[in-house]
């Protein structure tokens, strides 16, 4: 049984179709990377899998259950691209990570010892336990990303879904990240991630899925780095060809700034 199974998925916004016909699978214990140019619909694909964006055609199964009927959300740990917009009031790293326990605990039960332990374990895993009582806004971008991973890990999921976890993240955080993901995988977890640069994550990747013009253009081993743009935060700055995979080149023309 596959963890994620996407069959002929089509997704659009306001009548404009972004993904036309996407099919792929994530098996148990597998690490799959979704690659593609900016604006190619990688985030849209992930959001559709998570039920945040509706599917117009096709089917998605999560852990063998059709997504519409899937209720076991504690099995999925989602790591969004950045910290949510609601940051008008200070919140500590520990409080943000504790949100990751709600899927398991439910909203009616008070936190127990097991919840607190899970939060501390997750923060230890990403190397931020010493910041547990600090406001998240005092952390660097990379540390905030690690906080979001810890939040997902705190729920002890079976599948991690990450949207560009390493975009704009300093080298030290990228390494901490890769190590945490590696440990997650070694305990049997599956990972689906969107990446622009694989960087230190490369050795973990079992399979790469390249999205191009709303379809899967390539599935296979992760493509080789395309050279000069290895710096982490060059997004949206200069157009260039990315993800050269077995002769498939994602052309610079479709690098539409997405967000």
């Amino acid at each position: 049984m596959s963890v994620v199974n996407v069959r002929h998925a089509a997704v659009g916004y306001d009548g404009r179709e972004i993904l036309h016909d996407v099919s792929f699978e994530v098996g148990p214990g597998e690490v799959v990377a979704i690659l593609g140019a900016n604006g190619s619909g990688k985030s849209t694909l992930i959001r559709t899998i998570l039920g945040l964006t509706p599917l117009t055609r096709g089917e998605i199964d999560l852990f063998g259950t059709p997504q519409r009927k899937f209720r076991d959300w504690a099995r999925i740990g989602y790591v969004p691209q950045r910290l949510g917009a609601g940051s008008g009031v200070p919140a500590t790293v520990g409080e943000v990570v504790a949100s990751g326990r709600l899927a398991r605990r439910g909203i009616f039960r008070m936190p127990r010892v097991a919840d607190k332990t899970a939060v501390r374990d997750a923060l230890t895993d990403v190397g931020l336990l010493d910041r547990i009582n600090d406001p998240v806004t005092t952390l660097s971008g990379g540390q905030q990303q690690r906080t979001l991973i810890a939040r997902a890990l705190a729920g002890k999921p079976d599948l991690l879904v990450l949207d560009e976890p390493t975009a704009g993240v300093d080298a030290a955080s990228q390494e901490a990240f890769a190590a945490a993901l590696g440990r997650f995988q070694s305990t049997g977890g599956s990972i689906l991630l969107v990446a622009h640069e694989l960087g230190p994550l490369r050795p973990l990747i079992d399979r790469a899925v390249v999205v191009h013009e709303g379809r899967i253009a390539h599935v296979g081993p992760p493509p080789e780095p395309a050279g000069h743009h290895a710096e982490p935060d060059h997004d949206h700055v200069h157009p260039h060809a990315v993800q050269q995979a077995n002769g498939i080149c994602v052309a610079p023309t479709d690098r539409i700034p997405a967000n």
């Binding site: 969004p80 609601g86 409080e95 949100s99």
Partner: peptide, 26 residues
Amino acid sequence: AFRPALFAVCNDEEYARVSGLPVRAL
């Protein structure tokens, strides 16, 4: 009493949705 859940919804509504929280009810 609902502080953890309400905090999660206000802090990151999409994450709360993916956690299976009753976001609309909250």
